[in-house]
Nucleic acid binder design. Sequence first.
DNA 1: GCAATTTATTTACTTAGGTAAGTGTATAAC
DNA 2: GTTATACACTTACCTAAGTAAATAAATTGC
Lengths: 144, 144
Amino acid sequence: MRNLLFHEIHQKSRLSIKEVNEALKEFDLYSSQWSILFCLNQFGSMTQKEIWQYLNVEAPTVTRTIVRLEKSGWIVRREGKDKRERIVQLSPFAEQKLPDIEERIRQTEARLVSSLTDEEKEQLLVLLKKIGMTGSEEKDVRNG
Amino acid sequence: MRNLLFHEIHQKSRLSIKEVNEALKEFDLYSSQWSILFCLNQFGSMTQKEIWQYLNVEAPTVTRTIVRLEKSGWIVRREGKDKRERIVQLSPFAEQKLPDIEERIRQTEARLVSSLTDEEKEQLLVLLKKIGMTGSEEKDVRNG
DNA sequence: GCAATTTATTTACTTAGGTAAGTGTATAAC
DNA sequence: GTTATACACTTACCTAAGTAAATAAATTGC
C-alpha cells in the first residue's frame, strides 16, 4: 500500500509509550513525566524553556506536565533571578526513587529492541534522524 | 546519552503528524481523521472494529474520530445485519474530495523523507517493524 | 524615564490516545 | 426458551500535545 513509513513510526511511538506507561505504573508516573524527570536528572536545575527546548515540545505541554509532577511531589520550582523564569529541579524524593525507575525503563526499552542488533539500532537511529531534514540541514545528522 | 531511539521515534511521530495536520488544514481535517478516510477509500465499507483493528488503536479512539467525521459530513454510518455493528462508508462529498487530499498528503510525506534514498526508506521500514517483536514473532517482519 | 517590543509562562480550547465500565445485541449452554 | 457469556460499540475520565491568546517581567528605543 502507501506510505507505510509514517504509519509504522506512529505505531511504534504509541507502542513504546504504552509499554513505558505500563512499566511506570508502579511509580505512579507517565512516560512524558518520566522524560522530564530524566532530563532534570541529567542536567540538574533547568528553566521550563530549557526543558521544552530539549524535549522539542511546546511550552504549554511542559507547563502541564510540570504542574502534575509538582503536585505529586517529584519536582520543586523556584523563581529565577529573571522573574519570568521558573527554575525546576528534582525533589529529594525523586532523587531517591530515580535509580530504580531508570533501571525499570532501561529494561523495558531494551526488551522492545531486543530483536535488533546493536548495529541495527544505530542504523535505525541514523535513518530516523534524516526524516524532516532538507538538503541544507543534513550536516546535523552527523553532528547530533 | 541514553535510549535516543524511542526519543527519536516519538519526535518523528509528532513531527509527521504536525506536518500532515498542516497539509490537511485547508480541508478542515486532522491526521487521524485522514487515516480513517484513507482506510475506507482503500477497503470500501468497514465496521468500526475492522477500522480499529487495521489501524491498531482502541475502539473508543475510533468511535470518537468517526463521530467527528460523521458530524462534518465525510462519512455515513448504517446498521449492519448484526445490529451491534455499525458499518462505515465514505460520503459522496468525501469521495469527490479524496483524490486532492491524497495528493496533498503524498507530497507532504514525500518531502519529509526526501533526504532518504528508496533503499534507506525500505530499510527504515524493516527496522521499525522489528521493534516490539520477540524471537518467536520475527517471521512477521518478513510476511508483513 | 516611559512606551513599545520581546520573552517566559500560563490559560483555554482542540484533537489523539489509553483504560475501565456501561449498554445493547448475539450466541452458547442447558 | 431462558440464562449466561461474549461481543460491538459507547461513555466517562485520564494523560499528551498542539495553537492562540493572556499575563507579567525584561529589554529596547527614544
